[in-house]
Amino acid sequence: MIVLYINVIILCLLVITAIAINQQDNLFATTMLTGIFSLLSASLFVCLDAVDVAFTEAAVGAGIALILFLGALSLIKYKEKIKNKISFLGFFIVILTGSLLIYGLQDIPAFASPENPVQTYLADRYIVASEKEIGIPNLVTSVLASYRGYDTLGEVTVIFTACIGVLMLLGRSRGDYKGIVSREKS
């Protein structure tokens, strides 16, 4: 029961943080609030017993992503340009999408029910047989690294490809950036 209360409190804090992010026009404060949002989501994942996901969220969302945002912020101005015009088309689209999502919620199976399709297909087999087949206690690692090793290979390749893409766009090889700085100064 107490976990339910903690979940509700964290969800409320998430909503408050999201509203604060939306209201803020100082980009530095927005970045920091995004970090707080990630940390809150990480604690929510801990409450849901998804420790591995919480770990990733805390390390990536609250750690690295924040640093990269700050790095990008050092290249631009801190203040957001304010647009006072209210777009009715945008408002309409948001309301429409929101109501469609709420309508779609009716078909989603009950939260954490053991009868959910996702629990009945392969989960049992992993829980029963993975200790015998793989021989390591952490189920998440054996699913990610062994049963779904091909998917993880794809993930690593995606990260590597993203890295190549960013380097092609932004990467300055050694010495080059000095030239850019001196050109900016002159």
């Binding site: 690294a145 690593v156 890295c163 380097l167 932004l170 990467g171 300055r172």
Partner: peptide, 21 residues
């Protein structure tokens, strides 16, 4: 394979920092 994942992820993050900093 975890070693491979760790190496790629760590170097990607450091390279992104180099690119943005």
């Amino acid at each position: 394979i975890e070693l491979g994942v760790g190496m790629t992820v760590a170097s990607t993050m450091i390279l992104l920092f180099y690119a943005f900093a």
